[in-house]
Structure formats: C-alpha cells, structure tokens
Design a binder for these strands. Structure first.
Lengths: 285, 285
DNA sequence: CCAAATACTGTAATTAAATTACAAAATACT
DNA sequence: AGTATTTTGTAATTTAATTACAGTATTTGG
C-alpha cells in the first residue's frame, strides 16, 4: 500500500493536529515533497514535532524518509488516491484513473508472475509443431493478438474464437502441439473442456489463467497473473492488458531463443507491410 | 527522462570523482535513497561536496532533492536502466523490461492524450445510431476488444477485420453513425480509404491513430496516443496496449454518461455469463 | 462534577545533515 | 616549464530534523 493510500485509510487513527497535517499533504502532495518540515508545519498550522510524529505513525523513519515514500507514491504524476471510477468523475478524472489502475495492475502482475514458468512456456513454444490460441469473450481478442505475433515467427499458428472450431482443433492435436488457453477467471466451462480434450490428445496445454481454477487444473503449465480485476464496470480491463503483456513476453522470449538471425526475418515480415502503407515521407495523400 | 537514465546518458560529462559517485549510485540505487550524503561520499570514496556537485549537475537542487528524484525513478522496483530487450537477456530481464516499457508507454500516453478530445469522442459515441470498429493487423484485435466492450451497452456495434466487409459497411454508413478507425501508424492505405468513404457518407469518423498521419486527415476526431513504439522486435507492443486502455476509457466515459441505471444493465450482462462458467464455490470439476 | 490519569501538542535545546566558501591539487594549455 | 583552468577536499556555516521536556487538553473513574 502506498503512503497516500495509507494516509487515507488511517485517517481515523490520527489526532486532531495530525489530521490537519494529513489534510494539507493530501491537498498538495507535490508541494509537500519539496517542503521542509518547518514549511509543512506552518501550512498545517501545527508544530514541527507534530509533523514528525505524523510521519512516524505511518511507519516511516522520520520526515525525510516520509518524503521519500511520498515521492514514490507520486512517481507517476499525482495519482488519484482512489483509483476507482466514480459517478461524479469528469473525463480528466476517469482517464487518469484508468491509466493509473492499469499501470498498477501491470505492476502487480510483474511481481506475481512466475519467471521459471515463463521460461518453461517459452521452451515449449519454441519446440512446438503447431501453436493454437484459444479464448472466448474478452480473451478472444487476446488470442487474436497472440496469433498476430506468433504468426510472424513462421510457425504454424491457429486461433479460433468459435467453440466448435476450437473443439475440432483440440481433438486433432497431437504430441508436440501446444495449445494456449486464455481465460481470466479460468472458469469458462467450454474452454476447460477444450483444454481437457487437448491434454488427452497429448498436446501441451498452457493456461493463461487464474491459479487453482478449473481451467488451471487441465493445464500442463499455468501462467497466472493474479491481477485484481477492477469490477466497477463489470468489464475485463486490467486483466486483459496484463494478458497481452504476457503474450508480448512469450513472443519476446521466443525470438530471443531463436537467435539474432531469426530476428532479421521479423524485420522482413514488417518490411513486407510497406506496400500496404503510405510512405512516411510522402504524406501528400 | 528519469534520473537513472540521466546519469547513464551523461556519464561522459562527469569528472573522475563524479563518475565514482555515479557508479556507486547505479550499483545500489535502493541503498542510495536511504543514505546520507556522508555515507554515500564514503562509499564512493569522495568528499561530500563532490556528491553535492554531482547532484547539481543533474539539475537537482541538492542531495535531498536528488534522492527524491531517485526515489521516483525507483518507485516501481529497481528498473532496468535500459529498457530495451537485448540478446543476452534472460527470462527475468526481458520479462521485467517488457513490463517496464509497457508501463512507461502508458505513462507517456496518459500525459499526451487530449482529454477534451476524449470527451468529444464520448459525446459522439453516446449519440451514435451505430458504432463500427475497424482495424487491420495488430489493430484488428483492438477493434475486436472494443466490440466486446461496446456490445454490452446494447448499442448496435459492428467490427470487421476484412477490408471488403469494412468497405461495404463504410458505404452503408449514414449521419449519426460513428466509425472508429484504429491504426498505430495511420498510414495503412486500406484503412484510410475506409475512413474517407465513411466520412463522405456523413458518418463521424474517430481515429485512434498518430497525429498528422494520412488517416488522421480523414477523421473528424483524432485520438492520438503518441507512444514511442518499441521497435526492437518489429512488433506492435506498447502502442497496442495503449490503444486498449483508450478503448477502456471511452467505454467508461460512455457508461458514466449514461448514468447509474445503465450500469445495472452491465451487471446483468455480466451475470448472464454465469451459466457458462463453473461456480466459484463448486470447483470440484 | 471533580480529580487523576492519559494522551496530545508545542517550546526550546540538541543533534544531525547539507551546503558554502575557500584553499590545495590536478589537469590542460600555451 | 609555467600559467590558467578545472577539479577536489577541508573546514566553517547554515539549515533542517529530532529529542527531551513541559504545559495543555481530554478522557475516565470515583
């Protein structure tokens, strides 16, 4: 929990004067980090030791240490203390909040993702005879994106968002094939079945899903992101972004494993698009 | 540019002793922010004023101010000074780097995005008779995702990744229809044509694309993200994530504009999925 | 309702930290 | 080689933060 959140949550444990300090800090956090303890004390109309005690109450060593913590909380601009979008938020507020909560989610994802599993997944993918990406609903677009990436590697890639096609594809999979199932909750029945079918047919099943979920149980390898989903609007948001970043990571690992020559091919793939685009110089049209 | 990057980039402008300081800081940035100037001077085997001068050279007011800046750079864990994935990077390194560069990209996107345009776009979308999302290649999955979101609002939404379908759809658009064209570069010829056709037919064309691009010129409203694309691997990565977040923002703006009753409907949409999922309690299967 | 205890707050003294001024080396340049 | 310039360190000064203590408010129990 960052310092700002901490201040808000423990606002009730503060004494009257400490509360004054809290109010001033919350009102001008950016000013605070560039103020001396004397200046802040004056702003809050309290004594300097009170400010110091306030800092200690928040488990910091003292005022300078507190400023350090505060600076870290403010690292990405002045964040909204509450990142949840609210009824009365204007465009500025909800835009900032969504960016912030997405970045925060990526940060947790980074901390929680298991590197050795990523490495294993990359292993498996580089050796795959065929790679399939399956997702339903919001995860379908993640699967499409994965296809778009891995397709460039000149490996057989398929991607279906149709359960019948997924099913047929899963049944036809064999040893050496890799099936990547994407589902935030890991509780989508159809996808669990697909995973089970693929597994029965000796394919390696990688799950980009929640730990301990029904889907995870069907998988040979589980990549869990454990992003706290922002349920305010009943839509998958942060989780899906984290999934995409994970796809990026797998794709990157894949290319690194393949060596530098391989990457020249990627450049060719990109260059092949040139004909379909307006030239960067000639923008007259 | 954050302080760490700044140190690395100006390492040649440093004097011998300043360089010692730089080395110590880069080696233990986390330690540095909790050290006094005396401690750091000792670690670097230089005098205290040298450390102070070092801080000033980096455009900070002095040592405490420098620590503040450093703390902000380290806010999200110890970042890789160089965020670009390199040949010799192991799984841990490239995973962290991709997370970091994506977060950094979102941060720039947030700073650069124009709030008033977002507001206008939300305006237009809430009043739309029909919303179409068009993208090609990597942007196609963003379009799909957008469809998945806006579809829940019970508004007519279409999404095509096939240029023929896109073209037909664009020709059939009329006043009151909104066409959202997604392209990072804004130079995909086919998409520019689609935008032009839609515009000719009096649809409002929103471009999620680069400023001053051919596509932007065809649009009524341009939402530019200006994310520096990580071209290391010749694949769209950060740009696409930023686009998705923008979609989230538009969707959020949409629901807020519609009021709280509307959001109850969203809950219903989500609840309707329950039948397709394993119960959270009953995870026996 | 009053007294005693406890918690809160501020003043003043102390300590610690950072900065400045200046002098001595070291380096570069003629 | 000698001078100018830059770099570096020592010591003094200033500034900031913390501690100790005392006074004030607040609560609690009689």
């Amino acid at each position: 929990m960052n310092v700002l959140e901490k201040i808000v949550s423990s606002v009730n444990n503060f004494s009257k004067s400490e509360r004054k300090v809290a109010d001033v800090i919350l009102a001008n956090p950016q000013v605070t980090i560039h103020s001396s303890i004397a200046a802040l004390a004056k702003m809050a109309d309290v004594s300097e030791p009170t400010v110091n005690r306030f800092c200690r109450r928040l488990d910091t060593k003292g005022f300078p240490d507190f400023k350090l913590h505060l600076a870290q909380s403010l690292a990405n601009g002045t964040p909204y203390v509450n990142r949840h979008v609210e009824e009365e938020d204007g465009p500025e507020a909800y835009t900032a909040k969504i960016f912030e909560s997405t970045m925060a989610a990526l940060d947790t994802a980074r901390q929680r993702v298991d590197i050795s599993t990523i490495n294993k997944a990359v292993d498996v993918l580089t050796q795959a005879k065929k790679i399939s990406f399956f997702g339903l609903g919001a995860s379908a677009s993640v699967a499409h994106d994965a296809q778009n990436k891995f397709f460039r590697f000149n490996v057989p890639v398929v991607c279906f968002d149709d359960i019948v096609m997924q099913r047929m594809s899963a049944i036809n999979s064999t040893e050496g094939d890799v099936v990547v199932c994407i589902s935030h909750t890991g509780r989508t029945k159809n996808l669990c079945e697909i995973a089970a079918i693929a597994k029965e047919n000796d394919a390696t099943v990688i799950g980009i899903t929640a730990y301990e979920s029904p889907l995870a149980r069907e998988c040979s390898l589980v990549l869990s992101l454990d992003v706290p989903e922002d349920t305010d609007l009943y839509m998958p948001m942060a989780s899906r972004v984290a999934q995409l970043v994970l796809i990026d990571i797998l794709a990157t690992g894949f290319t690194l494993r393949r060596g530098s020559k391989f990457r020249e091919n990627l450049k060719k793939v990109k260059d092949s698009l040139r004909g379909s685009r307006f030239d960067k110089k000639d923008m007259s049209l």
